[in-house]
Every structure is written in C-alpha cells, then in structure tokens.
Design a binder for these strands. Structure first.
Lengths: 206, 206
DNA sequence: AACCTAACTTAACACTGTTAAGTTTCGGAG
DNA sequence: CTCCGAAACTTAACAGTGTTAAGTTAGGTT
C-alpha cells in the first residue's frame, strides 16, 4: 500500500497504455503505420518516453504480439477438452486460421517475418506462447499415435507436427499475403481451410 | 544502327546495372539493406539517377523479383516433360522449395508480403510469372483428373491447386521465417518437403 | 529542508524514400 | 558550324523514421 507499490502499478499502467495505443494503430492501419511518434501522440507523451518502458520498437511489438497470441491461446484449453484427437485437430486448425485472419498484422510479425539471428529468447518465466501452441499440436499427434490413428510409417511426432503446422500455416500466410492479388481466383479461405484439413486427415491418418 | 538505337541500348544497359547492384545487396544482406543510396554507390551514380529508370523503389524490387522468378520458371519447361503427373508434381514441388530457399529475399517479397490494394497488374505483354507457375500447377491437376488419379470428390481444380500451393508454400515460408528460432527442433527442410509431398499424394489422390 | 532518482521533454543525429531545381551532354535542325 | 531542346544526370532539400544525449521536473527518502 506504500507509495512504492503505487509507483510500480502506475508504471505497469502506462506500459499497457503504450501497448494499447500501439495495438490500435497496428490493427487498424498495419505494422508500417506504427510509429514511435504516432504511439506517443496517442498517449500524449513525447516519443522518447516510450524508451523508458520498452527497449526499442521491435521488443515493443514483440511483446504486443506475444501478449495477444497468449490471450488467443487460452482458447486452446477448451479445445483441449475435445476427446477425439481428430476432431480436436480440426478445431485447433480452424482456430489457428481464425486468429491469423482476424489479426493479420500479429500473424505477419510472428510467423512471416524472419528474425535476426540473435534472438535472446528470454528463458525466464512463462515460456513463449508459440512454443506452447506447438506443444499442444505435438500432444494431439501423440494422442493420434497412441490411439493407432496415425499411419504406421509415421514414427517421428515432430516431423508430423511440423508437417501439419506448415500446411495450415500455408493457408493463413498465403491468404494474408496474396488476398489482394487478382490474377488468381482464390476460393473462399474457409473452403481452402476445410480442404486442407481433410487432406491432412486422409494423408496422415488411416 | 543509328544513335537512336545506341541510346536505347545504353539506357537498357544502365537499367540492368541498377538491377544487378540491387540484386547483390538484396541477396547478400536482405531486403532491408537495399537502399537507393547504397544501390547508387555501387554503380557510382547519385541516388536520384535511379528514378530516371524506375518509378520508385518498390517497382524496382518488383521488377527484380519478377525477372529472377521468370528465370527460375524456365526450369519448369523441362519438368513439364515428365509424363507421369504425380512425379511431375513432386519435381515441381521440390523445385519450388529450392527456389524459395536459395532466394529467400525474393520469396519473401513475392509471397510473404502483402501488397497494397492498388496493384496495377500491368496486363501488357508477357503476363506475370507467378500466374504462369500457377497455370502450370493447374495443368498438373488437370492431368491428374483426366487420368482418374484424383479422388473423385475433388471436382474443383482451382481449389485443389490452391490446396497444393498453400501446403508447399507453408514449408517454404515457415522455413524462411522461423529457421532461426531455436525453441522448435526443426527437422531438415528436405525431410519436411518430402513428408508434405507424400501427404499431398495420399490425401488428394487415390 | 536537502537531496536524489525516476520519469519525462527538448533537441539532435543518422538514416530513409522522394522531389524540385539546376547542370551537363549530345544528337538533330537551320 | 551553330544553336536548340531534350535526355541524363547531380546537388540540395524535404518530410519522415528509430534512437540517444542532455536537460528538466516532480516526489519519496533521509
């Protein structure tokens, strides 16, 4: 209750105000419109003030994506309840696509942009949500295997998980990057998603 | 042979010198290192000179990618000779992956970066190479269908082609964007490619 | 009451893409 | 041969970016 805690709380408050301002710009106008100066305008601070709360722009955006993806990943706890692993996989795939399409800027930054090699993966604490999502997928693959639903020649669960991930990621990322191109008559993305999911089933299960 | 033609030829020459300089930077240091000023340095011109040959930076890079992808797509003419459409599909998939991995900057700009909505697709002349590649894929799907190799419930060739494209694109783009992440133990990209290709076969053919 | 540090602002730096204005070069017409 | 006009280029500048060094203010601690 001392002023020490208050200061800390206030500090956390302005941190999230910065993140909120960034998110609005991010979602409404895309990543290239997110500018330190524009964020600062929104919260009526000087641009330099942001650097007192975030190391640089990149880690600000990384934290934003991390936070929102973690928020989304909470939905996986209800999907995890689905007993049939095949249905669970379908549901997870649909949810993943939906996240990508409703948060294209997030998705782009997280999964379509190469990171420089440094990548101090901040081992401390909760563990990054991408990793958790991948672990979830691996769990589904594990269940498929123990229930004998996987094709018998598929022995490496990581390889299977990465195959599934790549496939569904392909749908999302192609939609995000290419939906405005008119030279290919794209089928509705939902149709493509379902098509891909049944291909995964018929191609990997038995 | 008049000076008229010479001037035109010289103009074309400096154009390709600009493209070559851009390509070197592009390939060796990535797209974010390609700067009008650095291109200009390499050819010992002023940065402004480039604008006499290219409308802006974006169309310079677009032309570069277009040119190189078209160059790559010529390889498809030999793949097109493969009589068995299944083998043809595999070969095309492998070639596509190889292009993406040896030209990640090209691939990123062409297939992992959203274009603004305008997109004056320059209907004039040769037609863009991405479209040609897609047409090639549709041709394979067509052959598969007429030979009765496609699953009978797959009636829409575009949907099938887009499914295959998304799948293989997923492998390439994930590799480009995530190969430096250490939290997931990626299997070798060749293994993932083969895995995905057999999944496509078992999932879409009969 | 004095101080000291956290939180902020102002001003600036080194970049970026792009453009307006001025200069050079050079083929073609009188 | 001379002059012209346009093409090809340069210099200087603008408006924007992320980021930092230095200065200022406010508020809890001694």
């Amino acid at each position: 209750m001392g002023p020490r805690e208050r200061r800390e709380r206030e500090r956390e408050e302005i941190r999230t105000r910065i993140l909120d301002a960034a998110r609005e710009l991010f979602a409404s106008e895309g990543v290239e419109s997110v500018t330190m100066r524009r964020i600062a305008d929104r919260i009526e601070y000087s641009p330099t003030a942001i650097y007192f709360h975030f190391r640089d722009k990149e880690s600000l955006l990384a934290e934003l994506c991390d936070y929102d993806f973690r928020n989304f990943a909470h939905g996986f706890t209800v999907i995890a309840q689905i007993p049939d692993p095949v249905e669970r996989l379908r549901a997870a795939g649909r949810a993943y696509v939906e996240f990508g399409l409703t948060n294209p800027s997030h998705y782009r930054l997280m999964f379509m942009t190469p990171k420089p090699v440094n990548e101090k993966t901040d081992k401390s604490g909760k563990g990054n949500p991408e990793e958790d999502a991948y672990a979830f997928l691996k769990g589904v693959v594990h269940d498929l295997k123990t229930q004998g639903r996987l094709r018998e020649d598929l022995t490496d669960p990581d390889l299977v998980a990465q195959t599934i991930w790549a496939t569904i990621h392909g749908v999302v990322s192609l939609e995000i990057a290419k939906c405005n191109d008119e030279w290919v008559e794209f089928r509705p993305v939902d149709a493509r998603t379902e098509q891909v999911l049944t291909m995964v089933e018929k191609g990997l299960l038995r």
